[in-house]
C-alpha cells in the first residue's frame, strides 16, 4: 500500500487532473458571475435551500469556483483549492441526487442557466460529478507541486532560509 502512495507517477496524473479541474471550474463560473440573478433562479429550482440562503449562495459560490479554478491553474495553494473543489462537488452531487430522486425535470445549471435546455439532470450527471469529486480528492492527496507557484515560492523560501550548520 505504501508503494502505491509513493509512486512517482502520481505527480504527473495529479497535475493533469489539476489542470482539467481548473478548466472545468473556470468554464463553469463564468455564466454565474455574469448573471447572478439567473444563477439564483437555478439554485431555487432545486427546491432544497431555504429562500434566505439562495441569494447569498448565488453571490458567493461563483467567486469560490473562480478562485479555486485559478489556484489550481496556477498551482497556488493547490491542496486548499482541491479541498474547496471537493466540498463544492460533494454539495453539487447531493443537490442533483435529491433533484433526480424527486423526479424534477430540469437542467443542471452547471454550465448554463435553466433557460437553456442543455445538460438535463440524470444519473449520468451524478456520476459525472462524482468522478470530478474523486479527481479533486486525488489532487488533494497526491499533488506534490510538480509545477506552479507553490513550488516557486517554496524554492524562494528555502533559498532565503538561513543555513544551519
Amino acid at each position: 500500500m505504501r508503494g502505491f502512495f509513493d509512486w512517482r507517477g502520481h505527480a504527473i496524473f495529479a497535475m493533469a487532473a489539476r489542470l482539467y479541474l481548473a478548466a472545468i471550474f473556470l468554464f463553469a463560473c463564468w455564466h454565474k458571475i455574469l448573471d447572478p440573478a439567473a444563477f439564483a433562479l437555478d439554485i431555487a429550482t432545486y427546491q432544497i435551500l431555504p429562500l434566505y440562503l439562495v441569494n447569498p449562495l448565488a453571490i458567493v459560490l461563483p467567486w469560490v469556483e473562480l478562485a479555486a479554478g485559478l489556484m489550481l491553474l496556477l498551482g497556488f495553494r493547490t491542496r486548499a483549492a482541491a479541498l474547496l473543489m471537493a466540498g463544492m462537488m460533494a454539495m453539487f452531487t447531493v443537490a442533483i441526487s435529491i433533484a433526480v430522486a424527486k423526479g424534477l425535470d430540469m437542467s443542471c445549471g452547471c454550465f448554463a442557466s435553466q433557460g437553456s435546455a442543455d445538460d438535463p439532470i440524470s444519473w449520468h450527471t451524478i456520476l459525472r460529478d462524482l468522478s470530478w469529486l474523486l479527481l479533486a480528492v486525488y489532487v488533494f492527496i497526491f499533488d506534490r507541486r510538480p509545477l506552479g507557484l507553490d513550488r516557486l515560492l517554496g524554492r524562494r523560501k528555502n533559498a532565503a532560509a538561513p543555513e544551519i550548520s
Binding site: D35, P36, L41, L51, Y52, N55, P56, I59, L61
Partner: peptide, 22 residues
Amino acid sequence: GAATNALRPGGIAFVQRTEYEI
C-alpha cells in the same frame, strides 16, 4: 462576491423576500 454584487447594476438582493417563480 458581496462587494461586486453591491456595486454592479444588475446586482441581486442579498436576501430574497419573495419566492422565486420556478
